[in-house]
Simulated assay, not measured.
Amino acid sequence: MSHTLTIDGISKRYGDVVALDDLSFEVRPGEIFGFVGSNGAGKTTTMRIALGVLSADSGEVRLSGKPVDLDVRRTIGYMPEERGLYPKMKVGKQLAYLAELHGISRSAARNAVARWTERLGIADRVGDTVDALSLGNQQRVQLAAALVHDPAVLVLDEPFSGLDPVAVDVMSDVLVEKANTGVPVIFSSHQLELVQRLCHRVGIISHGRMRAVGTVDELRGGGNARLEVHAPEAPVGWAHHLDGVTTISHLDGRTLLSLDDHVDDQLVLHTALKTGPVHEFSLHRPTLTDLFREVVTA
């Protein structure tokens, strides 16, 4: 059965501090949803409320229309940012114990531990205690803990933090595999290039409010186009008089411009050519990193 995770108008205050302000979005079946924002924006609070660890002051979290109670919570695979493993407990026993806590049988738990430790490249470490592992391998164990009970939804808080490139590839492949089986996956990350590459849709949160939601292409299409012009003889401010054109930077004959939707880039080229030769003239849409900066600083 496929599920949709719905965050419906949740708000959370800590005294005078508004952590979340009427936040709403959904993660659809088989979708990888990237949840991005600055430190303190409300990502971790949202995820803890989604899991039922925290209660919201108002609003509701639902999985396929059902509010998150203990039974629903057992179907969620959660990877906390602060990590939650027992450092002196052996990896294999710990994963089996966590799987049984989610309601699966002892034999099924053992099989799941074998499958996921093999898949994540830590099968040879099941007899080691967690504190004997590198941080990267601890991260892999933490992901295994989120997967070992075959969850209906994955909620991962900064799962790629501190991983080497090989481990990032392994974890990315696993998330894609789970999504391909219909599982909704939400993860937070500051690695925006990774979010842009992996995610079907992205939500940008700032000061507890969702500022933008959509596919990367939709979000990029909504931002101003960037035009890079290399005109070595052009003076500073050569494009200032053009309506709808903003100069972002000008250095060593290279000018980066922001263009409103109505601007004809050929007019900009014609203006640049009046200053002398133009060696480069390239139009591109903002990256997710560019959009993030715009949203957060707005």
Rank of each mutant, 00 (worst) to 15 (best):
T275W: 02
A225C: 01
S172L: 12
V27F: 00
P184G: 07
V213G: 00
R62Q: 04
M89C: 00
G182S: 08
V36Y: 11
R209T: 15
G42C: 12
G237P: 00
D252N: 06
L273T: 05
A41L: 11
A167Y: 06
E26R: 15
L98F: 13
L194S: 02
S134C: 13
H230M: 08
G214R: 12
A272G: 00
L175Y: 09
M79G: 03
G59E: 13
S11I: 14
D71L: 10
A272H: 11
R201S: 09
D173C: 03
Q94I: 04
F292D: 03
G37A: 06
N111G: 12
A99S: 02
P286Q: 01
I49K: 10
V27P: 05
F281T: 08
G34E: 07
A112K: 03
G244M: 03
Y14P: 04
N224S: 06
H270P: 02
F35M: 11
V268Y: 05
V170S: 06
Q191C: 02
E118W: 00
A41K: 09
S107F: 02
G162C: 10
L63P: 05
T75D: 05
I186R: 07
M210G: 12
L269V: 00
F33K: 11
E60Q: 15
H250I: 01
Q139N: 14
H3L: 04
I49G: 12
T181M: 09
R28K: 14
D164C: 11
V17N: 04
I49W: 13
H102N: 06
S134P: 06
G182M: 09
V296D: 05
A50L: 11
L70E: 10
L291R: 08
D69W: 00
P165Q: 02
